[in-house]
Design a protein around this nucleic acid. Structure first.
Length: 483
DNA sequence: ATGTGC
């Protein structure tokens, strides 16, 4: 479906859907995009979803969408919406099915020369040690008691149990532990699905990527983040697996029912929400925090196995190879934060669905060693183009509740990609670019083919030109593990 | 995204 409403161009990076266009809009919707990308946006009618979000009870500031916007459940993917922490509503559709889907970057002090002739071994070892694919199960079995701790304290459980280093926690958003977690609202089914899957990558757009730091745009910040031109890095993209998916499913159902009984009038039932002050709203928020904690424990375990894989293939210790975590970001989550709204400080819940926190220098949430440089922001592109490292900027604090984009953004549906793209062509493109690909299925590769995505560089230009973030480094892939 | 389904 194509958007046929009114979209006003504000400037080279911003487009506006005015609140007077649809009844029920409480505020304007702003889409960050440029002349080239906006054509894609109009194709899937996702502007309508950005307009619908402006109807959310208690919304503060604009409904916003990042340049990687595309059609999602209720909210667009790439959507940002803040609601009043006391009067506002929380919506599972504004967070996404994969609660705390996110990206982690691990650096090394190794260069291409150090792994010469061993890239294939390294990728094969990573593929063996980190289960991936649909329905993949973790190699370590954890019990109900462990799961309870994981839902409560996230990454801290992983580090306490030997998966990684204490200092990994400082460079994970929230320290890898959402303090508001309460698992009384996490259903039996979520626990049952989560138990065997812990420590696995999953499928879809989830991946593990071996990269080389190819470009450094900001030497000073790159140095603070531990990144040097020519160094090898590992990027991990995954989430909360069936555990978070089930939490989202359970509460969407409960909230759809709530909307009917309370007669809440919204333009799309997929916008189902509940007041933060209601029992249901609070229960979902606290259960969502548990899903987020699960995802952080998951990425922390994968970090541990990544280090072990390097140790085995290269015969050196992870410490001496300098395998520190650079940062870990969540891009499907809602967070309680305080922001300046029309000149005064306000407590808000910021929904980021396919959007990344991008706090500017100085914010207390940023770990001390990065505070003067801005929060690291990790933006993966498609499997052939690699990952950008950005830093949060003041524009994000002023306009987007400290948020930016999360990736390249699809330009083709999964179905369209499978039907129209050719597996041999995709594999050849990867090989020609010198990228070793280990994937579980041809269908998975087709769904995630480079042509199914927008050009991530173009997305990055928009968020940087708009002043939300600044470029720090570009990582180019040499190996990819796909689910 | 997902034991791809009310």
């Amino acid at each position: 479906m194509v958007w046929n409403g009114k979209l006003e161009k504000v400037d080279d990076n911003r487009w506006l859907i005015s609140r007077d266009q649809f009844p029920g809009m409480r505020t304007d919707a702003v889409i960050y995009s440029n002349d080239r990308l906006i054509g894609n946006v109009l194709n899937d009618n996702s502007p309508q979803q950005a307009a619908n979000v402006a109807c959310l009870p208690g919304i503060v500031g604009n409904s916003m969408a990042m340049p990687d916007i595309h059609w999602g459940y209720g909210f667009p993917i790439g959507g940002v919406a803040a609601v009043d922490a006391y009067q506002g509503s929380i919506s599972p559709g504004g967070i996404g099915f994969d609660i705390n889907c996110g990206v982690r970057l691990i650096k090394t002090d190794l260069t291409l020369e150090d792994i010469d002739g061993k890239v294939k071994d390294l990728m094969d070892e990573l593929y063996r040690n980190i289960p991936s694919g649909l329905g993949s199960k973790g190699l370590t079995k954890v019990g109900q008691k462990d799961l309870s701790e994981i839902l409560d304290i996230g990454s801290e459980w992983a580090v306490e149990n030997g998966y990684g280093w204490e200092k990994d926690l400082e460079v994970t958003e929230e320290g890898g532990h959402m303090k508001d977690a309460d698992q009384t609202g996490v259903g039996e089914k979520s626990r049952k699905r989560g138990l065997p899957e812990l420590g696995s990558l999953g499928s879809g757009n989830h991946f593990l990527e071996l990269d080389v730091v190819d470009d450094v745009f900001d030497e000073r910040t790159a140095k603070a983040y531990g990144l040097k031109k020519g160094c090898i890095t590992v990027t991990v993209h995954c989430g909360s697996r069936g555990c978070g998916h089930q939490i989202a499913t359970d509460y969407l159902q409960k909230m759809e029912h709530y909307m009917k009984t309370e007669k809440v009038d919204l333009p799309d039932r997929q916008l189902a929400c509940a007041p933060l002050s209601s029992r249901l709203g609070e229960e979902y928020y606290r259960a969502m925090c548990c899903g987020a904690n699960y995802a952080w424990a998951n990425r922390q375990m994968i970090t541990h196995w990544t280090r072990e894989s390097f140790e085995k293939v290269l015969g050196d210790s992870a410490e001496s190879m300098g395998m520190d975590v650079v940062y870990d970001v969540a891009h499907n989550i809602a967070k309680m934060e305080s922001h300046d709204v029309e000149g005064h400080r306000e407590d808000v819940l910021v929904h980021r669905k396919g959007a990344t926190r991008a706090f500017a220098p100085g914010r207390s949430e940023i770990t001390m060693k990065y505070r003067d440089y801005g929060q690291p922001v990790l933006i993966p592109g498609d499997m052939s183009t690699g990952t950008y490292v950005l830093a949060g900027r003041q524009g994000a604090m002023k306009e987007t509740f400290g948020s930016t984009c999360h990736g390249a953004g699809r330009q083709m549906s999964r179905k369209t990609a499978i039907e129209n793209l050719n597996i041999e062509t995709v594999r050849k493109k990867m090989a020609d670019q010198g990228i070793y690909l280990r994937a579980g299925s041809d269908e998975g590769v087709l769904e995630e083919a480079p042509d199914a995505y927008k050009d991530v560089s173009e997305i990055i230009e928009v968020v940087c030109n708009a002043g939300l973030t600044a470029k720090v480094a570009k990582l180019t892939p040499i190996g990819v593990v796909k689910g």
